[in-house]
Design a protein around this nucleic acid. Structure first.
Lengths: 183, 183
DNA sequence: CTGAATTTTCAGTAATTTCTGAAAATTGTA
DNA sequence: TACAATTTTCAGAAATTACTGAAAATTCAG
């Protein structure tokens, strides 16, 4: 493996655990993303020195995250894997899956709590905090939905706004003062 | 512990591991956030059935995330802990710390790779992908900086935009077509 | 200062997560 | 359909991470 690719594979291995993945998954995905031609499971297993079965489990996981594409080579029965060529697509899918795993269950739990009648002072306070959290998380959720549906170009434009964002908000406020937004 | 609080403590315990924390940390923070009066380490230890030393380590971690506030009660030598009353502040700090741990090191690693001269075809392809990732992550970083510096009200307004966001972008494009934004 | 109260550290243990090899299941071709 | 190629599953082993109790360090009132 080329030194550059190797160092990135190592790095993403380290980071893998900090993101919801794990070391092997991070390494596998780095290798797949950085390699131009699709790889089969044996190649991945050999390059990363991990067992064939571990690769199989890793690929299953990456599939469930929608992070890899499957392809075939004529006359070869093996399956070949590659990453979307578009980093935006990768980022989108990552965001979506993380939200599904990390945020959605909490939103549900908070909603459930809000349906209960508070039994005393303490619970009243707790519910008030739960309400705040719920509202914040719900807004974030709506936002990420919005990002999902935007074109790459539009998301890119939005991100490029950077510090212009604040100004844009002010402008909007001047043009459409206090106009309520529906979701 | 009240049933409502208990169920949330359990839930955040579960989720703790999916976020960069761990079970105990999630439980501790849920308890602190949902309890109105500041808690001391012994109370936390008792309520959650975890060792005093574990609480100490957890509090150290929560401090490093800027998630808790320290206070004292006159005539009591113990330290008391509470969460910011403002969920935005919590969300902000969480975002900042996660970025520091999960994104910044990667940005650095990607930059380092971009400084190397590609040795062959493979490396050339890899660098091209690294460039894409780098640019995307850098934009995200600038954005989160921007969010850090915005007032709560402004962030709230931004989040509330929800699906109005897309329209706002269009509007901007009409008014200031193609205007470049500096960071 | 002294010493009791409190907090922190840390080596060892417990719990959890990840990884492997062997076996089972699936796939596609002849 | 039969069978070789390939992939998946899964029980146990290995590695990692989290937790504890005991001891050390710190803090602060007297």
């Amino acid at each position: 493996m080329s030194p550059i690719i190797n160092s990135l594979v190592m790095h993403f291995g380290e980071m893998g655990s900090r993101w919801g993945l794990n070391r092997t998954l991070g390494q596998m995905y780095a290798l797949i993303v950085l390699t131009e031609k699709p790889l089969n499971a044996d190649e991945i297993s050999a390059q990363l020195n991990i067992s064939r079965s571990n690769v199989s489990m890793g690929l299953k996981e990456l599939k469930s995250w929608n992070l890899i594409k499957l392809s075939h080579i004529p006359g070869d029965r093996k399956e070949y894997f590659s990453a979307p060529k578009d980093v935006w697509e990768i980022a989108r899918n990552l965001m979506m899956e993380r939200r599904k795993r990390e945020v959605d269950p909490t939103l549900t739990a908070l909603r459930d709590v809000l349906l209960e009648a508070p039994a005393n002072e303490q619970e009243e306070y707790a519910q008030q905090r739960v309400k705040q959290m719920h509202d914040l998380i719900e807004m974030l959720t709506i936002w990420t939905d919005e990002l999902q549906n935007m074109s790459n170009e539009k998301v890119a434009a939005l991100l490029k706004l950077g510090s212009g964002l604040s100004k844009l908000l002010d402008m909007k406020e001047r043009l459409l003062p206090g106009k309520a937004n529906k979701e």
